[in-house]
């Protein structure tokens, strides 16, 4: 398998083995070019002092053109850090893993970014929509269309509140829909509150399904 990803990952691995990882980041396993595990630890004073978390990277054959699927490992006694952008199932809402991915980024660059995301955290709390998200989350976080909010941990932020209200409406509609149309799709996650079209479509199809009954 001499795919694009294998060649690039082999180079990254050689670099890691010769130059070592940045402080606080350690390689756990990288036995193939499909799944790598790293531990990350925030050095110095932070809310995560003394905690060690494990990051899982999954690559497809198009890496680095396509982004890796990155999440915290929540099995084998490992836990995801309590952070406003990290769900309890390990999924991470970070723009560089989604719309802001660039092929010049690397595995180590992602580790360092997530390490600094933890280091700069002001309050340990789960995302507001954690329970709802985890209930319906796809297995691969890349399938989630996250809404990236620039402001972290401002729970009074109108955008988050609006988003949360929309999420609630969606959940209720979904539950209602399931009663009438068992095969319906789960709602779109974390829709930007400005995206009225999506909400309207959702409401429209829900009402129509209910009216049909």
């Amino acid at each position: 398998m001499a795919s694009i990803s294998a060649r690039r990952l082999a180079k990254e691995l050689t670099e890691i083995k010769t130059e070592g990882c940045p402080v606080g980041i350690n390689i756990v396993k990288a036995d193939d070019f499909a799944t790598w595990w790293f531990t990350i630890e925030v050095m110095g004073e932070s809310l995560y002092k003394g905690e060690v978390h494990t990051l899982q990277f999954r690559f497809d054959s198009q890496y680095p053109i396509s982004s890796p699927a990155v999440q915290f490992v929540v099995t084998e006694g490992r836990q995801s850090p309590v952070h406003p952008h990290v769900y309890s199932n390990g999924h991470i809402c970070a723009s560089i893993l989604g719309t802001e991915w660039s092929p010049v980024l690397s595995v180590v660059a992602v580790c360092v970014t997530l390490q600094s995301m933890l280091a700069s955290c002001k309050k340990k709390e789960r995302p507001i929509d954690n329970d709802r998200y985890v209930r319906h989350a796809p297995e691969n976080p890349k399938k989630t269309r996250f809404h990236y909010d620039g402001m972290i941990s401002s729970s009074t932020d109108a955008r988050i509140l609006a988003n949360d209200a929309i999420s609630l409406v969606q959940t209720i509609l979904y539950e209602l829909l399931k009663l009438t149309v068992p095969s319906c799709n789960p709602p779109v996650f974390s829709v930007p509150y400005t995206d009225h079209a999506v909400i309207n479509r959702c409401l429209y199809s829900a009402c129509r399904s209910l009216a049909l009954k």
Binding site: A2, S3, I4, R7, R8, K11, E12, P64, I65, P103, V104
Partner: peptide, 14 residues
């Protein structure tokens, strides 16, 4: 090359 990390004088992975 920042994308494939192969020298410019080398060739792309394809």
């Amino acid at each position: 090359c920042g994308i494939c990390r192969v020298p410019y004088e080398g060739c792309c992975p394809s």
